[in-house]
Each structure stands twice: as C-alpha cells, then as structure tokens.
Design a protein around this nucleic acid. Sequence first.
DNA 1: TGCTGCCTCGTAATCGATTACAAGAACGAT
DNA 2: ATCGTTCTTGTAATCGATTACGAGGCAGCA
Lengths: 335, 335
Amino acid sequence: MTKKSTIALVAQHAGVSVASVSRVLNGLPASPAITERVQASAAALGYAPDASARRLRVGRTEQIAFAVADLGNPVYTAMTRTITEEVQEGGFRLLLASTGQGADGPLGLLTDLDGSFVDGLILSPLQVDERVVERLRGRRHPIVVIGSVPDDVPVDSVRADSMTGVRLALEHLVAQGRRRIAFVNGPVDTVPGAARLAGYVRGCDALGLVTHQELQVVADDFTYEAGLPAARRVLDQCVPDAILCANDLLGVAALNVLRERGLRVPEDVAVVGMDDTDLAGMTRPALTSVDLGSIERARRAAQLLLRRLGGFDGPPERVVVEPTLRVRASSGGAA
Amino acid sequence: MTKKSTIALVAQHAGVSVASVSRVLNGLPASPAITERVQASAAALGYAPDASARRLRVGRTEQIAFAVADLGNPVYTAMTRTITEEVQEGGFRLLLASTGQGADGPLGLLTDLDGSFVDGLILSPLQVDERVVERLRGRRHPIVVIGSVPDDVPVDSVRADSMTGVRLALEHLVAQGRRRIAFVNGPVDTVPGAARLAGYVRGCDALGLVTHQELQVVADDFTYEAGLPAARRVLDQCVPDAILCANDLLGVAALNVLRERGLRVPEDVAVVGMDDTDLAGMTRPALTSVDLGSIERARRAAQLLLRRLGGFDGPPERVVVEPTLRVRASSGGAA
DNA sequence: TGCTGCCTCGTAATCGATTACAAGAACGAT
DNA sequence: ATCGTTCTTGTAATCGATTACGAGGCAGCA
C-alpha cells in the first residue's frame, strides 16, 4: 500500500509553499510557472486531498445519508437508486444507513448525525414516535423526511397520498364489477400501514362497500414471506372477489396463494398491489399496482435537501406526490 | 437548527480542561467528581464529537464503502443488506457507491478513495481493466474485491465458482432428460458474463451436449428488460428443451417469454436461473436457480475487510465460495 | 526617480478532537 | 518532616487543508 501524501509533501517537492499548492489545486489565481510545478508534483506524488481535514476547515463533508428501514423491499431499492444519482449529480456521496424496524433505528442515527459525518439526511422512517420528533426539532443539519411529519416539525417532507392511491385502486376494482374487496395490509403501527388502512376504510365507505373484519388481514411485515400466511388467512375467512394489497410484495404473495387454492386471477379474484415496483411487471398475470410515486418522491426529497445545502433558508416545504394507477392483467382491466 | 457544541464549550461549561472532557468521554481514568460534571455538561449542551476532527487526529473514519454496479439487481441488494449488517456490527458505517456499468466507475471511485473518506472498500466490479488493476496495486487502504482479480494483485478477494455453478445446473438438466440446453447470457465483456460463458461451453463439452451458436444468446444487460428480447431471439433461432439463464432476472424474462409463446414450463422447456435471489421463489412456476453464494460472499468480504482494518497484515486471501443448486418447479425436478 | 497600486506568494492562524508531557496534589514510607 | 511514588489534571502539540493577512516585486505614471 502506497503511503499517503500530504499537501506539505507536494509543496516541498515543488519547492513552493503549502498555500500555493492549495491555491493551484483549488483553481485560485496563481502564476503559470507555479501552477505547472504544483500540478506536476501533485501528479508525481499521487496526491489526493484529505477529506476530513478539508471538511474540518470548510465545514462540509459532501456526504448525504439516506436512512431506510428495509433495503429488501424493491421500492426502497428504486428510491436508493434515484437518490444516489441525484446526489452524485450535486457532487455529494451517498451514505446508506439501515435503520431496521421500529423507531429506535432512526433515533440512534439522528444522534450520530450530530457528529456531522454528513451534511444532510433523507429519512424514510417506518415508525415515528415522540422521541424521533423531538430529535428532528433539535437537529443540526438539514433533514428531509419521506413520509408524514407533524405540522409543527420544521423539516422538509415529501409524502405519498396513500389515501387517494387506495381510492384509485378501489374505484378501479368497482368499475370492474368487484364488490367484496379484501385488504391485506402490513403492520398498522407503521406510518404507511396506518395511512393505507385509513384509505381503505374511508374509500370503502365512500363507495358503499362492505368492510367486514373478515375482509381485512394484517401481515407481520411488508414482505413476501409475511404475505403468504396473511393471504391464506383472508381466504380462510371469506370469499372476496378482489384483494387489495398494501404493497407489491404482499400482492405477489396473494397471487401465489390464489393459484395454490385453484382460484383464477383475475376471473375469480382480482389482485392489486401498491408501489408499482419492477416486480409488478414480472409476475404472470402481471400485477396491477398503484404507483405512489416512489421515484418522484425520492427525486424531490433529494432536490429539497440539495437546495437546503445550497443555502436556501425558506420555511419547511411539504410536498405531496399524487398517485397513479397502473393497470395490468391481474385486475382484468388491461387491453 | 440547534448550533453545534464543541469540546471547548463543554469544558468551559463544566469548568475543566478540554483534555479532561476528552478523557471522560473516551472512558479514560478520571476522578468521579470530574466525570460527573463533564457528563452533565455534555448532556446539557447536547454535545457530540465531530467526526472529521476525530478522524483527522486518529486516522479513522469508521466508514466503509461498498461499490456496486447496479443496485437494481436483487443479488446486489441482498449483498448490500448483508454487508450493512456486518460492518455495523464492527462499528462502521456503510457508504454506498454506485459505479454504473463499465470500468470507469470503479476507476473514479478508487481515485476518490485516496481522499480517505473511508477506511476500506469492498468492490464488486462488473468490468476490470488494466487501469483498475493498476489502481488496486497503488491503493492506500484495504480493499476486498468480490470477483476475480489477477493473482499478482495484492488484495483480498472473494469469488464465486461460476464454472462449477453452471456445471451443477447442466448436470441437473441432463438428469431431467434435457439435451438441447440454450444459454441466455449477459454481456460477455463483463467478469460474470465471461465466467458463465466459459462454464457453459466447458460444461456442455464435458457432458457431450451440443453448443450450436443458435443455442446461445447475449442480452444487452443483466436485467429483466434486456432478458425479454434475448429470450425471444433464442426461441426464434431454435427449439431448446431447456434454457439456462445467467441470472434470475434473465430467468424470469425467459419464463414469461415461454408463456407468451404458449410453451409449458417445465413440460416443454425447463428454465434455470442463477444467483438464487428472492425473486426465484416468487415466480410460478418457481425458478430453479444456482445459488452462487452471494450472501456468503458478501459476509466473507466484509469479514476480510474488517480483519484488515483490525490490523491483520498477512498475505492476500483468495476465498472461493462453492455454489449449490436450488431446485424448484421450473426445471421439473421438484417433489 | 519616486510613489501608488496590483499581483503573487509565503507565514501563520484556524477548524475540533486526541494525547504526550509536565506540573501539581495526595499519600505512604522512612 | 522529607522524599518518592502514583494519580489526576492542564497545557500545548498535532493531524492536513484552507485562507486571512502581510511582505515583496513589478508596472505604470508623474
């Protein structure tokens, strides 16, 4: 391993002062003679400025963190990809922080954040409790939350309109003649779980649909594995003509359980997922899914953060991204 | 936003010297009286040590980077998840660097790396050219490569045994009575593409199978979208009784194209994927897949890096992870 | 020639934490 | 009481880069 070279070594090698080296390397005015000597020496020594020293002086790490609960969910993968591109364009590196389930993950992260290892944070928490909110208030760096935050917490946020999203799905299913629409949700003590449940209940009310308890089931997680027993449970309890699932992983699980029970999709039971991930296009029948604008949310979140880091100091933004329905074969509505 | 508090402020608040504050906070010996005062002051001021300053002094960032070509591929997602867990356990944060396709991605990253924004790097390159190798030689930090590197490059590496993996798949298919086995590969100018092609050719030779050009097709990418036209092309060219795919995304594409052509899986054509990602269990029929030990490779890579960071200074390790075949319905071999 | 003004370049302060070193306190042994 | 040992605590150097400030050189102008 080659050993590290510092600005002092370059200065010595070039026979100039450290200040001149720094100036040349940062494009500040310097005479052609010095410029050339410094550049030659820097190249010869393979010099690369020390990120920590630089940051200590100028106050910027040029790093942004993205905190996500479960990378296994393709919707977060897609978001991560978008955010990576967006922040790299802005000249920042992306740090991926895995918070895991529960509210303790973000909490530890927010504490660490005070150590200034990043300039800003994009937080997509599954759960938010009082302690998290408190830390968001006392933050020292710009934070953008993907999801809902109480109105009085002064951070930018970008959220999906799950309520409308669920409504779109229900209306579509009703238009296909479905009336007994079951709902496979994820944990309701999470932000998305709660929002989607509320959307289902209100949407059914508005459309005059029944919402018996037997039509509703809660999976232990927003995962495929948790979706299988959940889908089986709902079919044991009732005979729906459609199943709405709180995300695509649960949707795929429902598709497979229906097949295992000998029920045809969409003839006997229609299925609709949410998030419109890549997965939706891969299943057969392809899964109709509500696009909650995850890519768009990721992009907007990144942009909001970059704007704050650029010095913008206005009041907190509250962005709501509108959902759209992506109809595929699993709901029988496709051409 | 609360403003930053430094060790000096804490010292002033507690009425002690900065050295004492540092000592208390780092658990070095100090009298109970001082310990208590410092802890109280630190808590009162919400003090958190500055990561850059600390790193500048002690020489550690406590960050590790994982460089990956395409996060959209579930195999990398799974690896990322494993590595995240592993390095967090070791007290490091994970930085995700997206290199994109081609050899230029890793190149820029390896240059940046000299800036010491991380203590070490796990690199999973799709392509490796001479320039990359050269940089690996002149590196200033421990690097672990997931994939193959020339023998004389002094870095730890963990690679899959694609050759054997492909062989396992071929043997399994032959045991199922298949003889005309087509191969849908990804780009052959990538490390995995080349390895899998070599495995296919040698495996077919050894098993006495035909390897006409019409049986082989190369997708533009290791993606689902690229897999669809590739699978169509191979079916236009020949009538195989099995299709081996270089990864699960291509495998799922093949499954869907076969269905679109009215061919039954596995009765008419068997399909086998590689990587054994979560996806394989979600399709119907479920996709038989060669587990190239991605999780294991990720874990080993993280452990090797952590060991180097712990001061280990032995000769470069070369770990090869053995593949296993995960038989599911798509190859007709399941119970 | 002498003065002003600009331009270039070097010296040294600075960011915040860690830590080597030394000074002082406390205590025990003689 | 005196000396030495140990323990605690503070002062100051240090990591590497950026940058304020000042010194010196050079050109332009009277």
